[in-house]
């Protein structure tokens, strides 16, 4: 057990260090883009608030927190492991040649890859936001189990996309495009469901994608009670994990990976 844990921790460390291979300035270019993406939404929310629009129960402060936290935790709210990108360049084959489980390696490399961003972008942003009058503290500690359920569900969704890629004979770009569209539209990471017209938000909340981003973000800003979102998050985990495991098991025989 200790040996296994040591191996997993070493993988996390290697994955985190690997993110720094291109140099810290290269990482900051990506962080700068995240901030650029954030600004239009911030101005839009302010514009609506200044015009006295009905913000669906949100205050401007809560809206800004929702948007900023969504940017800070983007990687956790939309889990992207090597399961979807490593078919393309042949890396997924390596996972079968190491004395660790495939899922264990995918999980640890993903978590390790998050660490530099959490330290160099998310944490500094959480410290700076209060200076601009935006709270970066969750309304309740129940946000953390909610986030854990979201991450768990994110891995299941990620595995299902991986199976889709295998089934589509390594159409990685297709899956990437499709996934981005689905997440942008259905997860609530960009626009809170309460601000959507025609009652669309009420339907999207029930879908698994709503449990990925909208659920933890709504709990973070206090727009949803944990007891409202936990049952759905748990339900989707119970439904999608066996499905993902079964689909991945079946897909392995079809897996083709090459590159260099």
């Amino acid at each position: 057990m200790v040996v296994i844990m040591k191996g997993l921790i070493a993988t996390i460390r290697m994955s985190a260090a690997g993110k720094l291979n291109g140099g810290v300035p290269a990482l900051f270019a990506g962080y700068l883009l995240k901030i650029v993406y954030l600004l239009p939404m911030v101005f839009l929310w302010r514009s609506f608030a200044e015009n006295g629009a009905d913000l669906g129960g949100f205050t401007i402060g809560r809206l800004l927190t929702y948007t900023c936290v969504s940017a800070m935790l983007e990687a956790q709210l939309n889990v992207r492991s090597g399961a979807v990108s490593w078919h393309y360049d042949g890396q997924i084959i390596d996972l079968y040649r190491r004395p660790q489980t495939v899922f264990g390696q995918l999980a640890t490399t993903t978590v390790g890859g998050w660490l530099p961003e959490l330290l160099l972008f998310s944490l500094p942003m959480a410290l700076v936001l209060p200076l601009f009058g935006v709270s970066a503290l969750p309304e309740t500690v129940w946000f953390f189990p909610c986030l854990a359920l979201s991450v768990s569900l994110g891995f299941a969704v990620d595995f299902l996309f991986s199976c889709f890629i295998i089934r589509m004979q390594n159409a990685t770009w297709l899956a990437f495009t499709l996934r981005n569209a689905v997440m942008l539209l259905l997860s609530g990471a960009v626009i809170p469901f309460d601000l959507l017209p025609w009652g669309i938000g009420g339907i999207l909340k029930l879908l698994p994608f709503g449990s990925l981003a909208a659920a933890p973000l709504s709990v973070f800003v206090g727009m949803a009670a944990p007891v409202e979102v936990f049952p759905l998050q748990i339900l989707w985990n119970i439904v999608l994990w066996p499905l993902a495991a079964l689909a991945f098991q079946k897909s392995r025989e079809r897996m083709v990976s090459y590159g260099g």
């Binding site: 495009t177 499709l178 981005n180 569209a181 942008l184 539209l185 960009v190 017209p197």
Partner: peptide, 19 residues
Amino acid sequence: ADGLSNAASVSGVFLLSQR
């Protein structure tokens, strides 16, 4: 997928303007 991706990228602003 490409059409859906494009629809998704403009849908956020569209839905907000409708709301």
